[in-house]
Amino acid sequence: MNNDQLEGKWKQVKGKFKQSYGDLTDDDLYYSEGKFDEMLGRLQEKTGRSKEELKDEIDRL
């Protein structure tokens, strides 16, 4: 999924991540253009998963 597609579907993906990882906050899942890697870093810290694992999960959602 490219960044344009991600931006278009982020609200759906964000909701599913919050269901899967209950300790995530809106701040953790805040996405703004050009800040995808920063957001992935926050998700890595909270979930203990690698960037590749998180990208794969986002693509599946």
Rank of each mutant, 00 (worst) to 15 (best):
M1G: 09
N3T: 08
N3L: 10
D4V: 01
D4P: 00
D4I: 00
L6K: 11
L6R: 13
L6I: 14
E7N: 07
E7C: 01
G8K: 09
G8F: 08
G8M: 06
G8A: 15
K9P: 00
V13I: 15
K14W: 06
K14D: 08
K14I: 05
G15T: 00
G15W: 00
G15C: 07
K16Y: 05
F17N: 10
F17P: 05
F17S: 09
K18M: 15
K18Q: 15
K18F: 02
K18V: 07
Q19K: 14
Q19G: 03
Q19S: 13
Q19N: 10
S20I: 03
Y21H: 12
Y21T: 04
Y21D: 04
G22S: 13
G22K: 11
D23S: 12
D23E: 13
L24Q: 02
T25P: 12
D26W: 12
D27S: 11
D27Q: 12
D28S: 00
D28T: 01
L29V: 09
L29Y: 10
L29G: 10
Y30Q: 14
Y31W: 11
S32K: 15
S32D: 14
S32N: 12
E33I: 01
E33N: 11
E33C: 02
G34W: 06
G34K: 08
K35V: 07
K35E: 13
F36G: 00
F36A: 05
D37I: 13
D37A: 14
E38M: 09
E38D: 15
E38T: 15
M39H: 08
L40H: 00
G41N: 14
G41K: 08
R42H: 13
R42F: 05
L43G: 06
L43T: 06
L43K: 01
Q44T: 11
Q44A: 11
Q44C: 12
E45N: 08
K46P: 10
K46L: 10
T47G: 04
T47S: 06
G48Y: 05
R49C: 06
S50K: 12
S50Q: 09
K51N: 13
E52Q: 14
E53H: 04
E53N: 09
E53Y: 04
E53G: 01
E53K: 08
L54V: 06
D56H: 03
E57A: 05
E57C: 04
D59V: 14
D59L: 08
R60M: 09
L61M: 14
L61T: 04
